[in-house]
Amino acid sequence: MNFDKEFDLSGLSCPMPILKTKKALADMASGQVLKLISTDYGSVKDMQAFANQTGNTLLSTEESSGSYTFYMKKK
């Protein structure tokens, strides 16, 4: 999937993945896609909840050996 910016959240626990995602999105333009990598299993539900509540779109969630990749499209 194409993306405009990548952010590695590996090793971080709640709530840091969400707080850093929020910050990473802040200096992006509407419609741009942010790729996120997290090792926190809790982020799977949290990223969806973040998207639902902020109006950004979670395009996909992929899991690969304990690492989760998210593509978040900015509102």
Binding site: C14, P15, I18, L19, T21, K22, F50, Q53, T54
Partner: peptide, 11 residues
């Protein structure tokens, strides 16, 4: 602190 910072991030 966790809930306050997260809620703020959620708007």
């Amino acid at each position: 602190f966790i809930l306050a910072s997260t809620a703020a991030a959620l708007g």
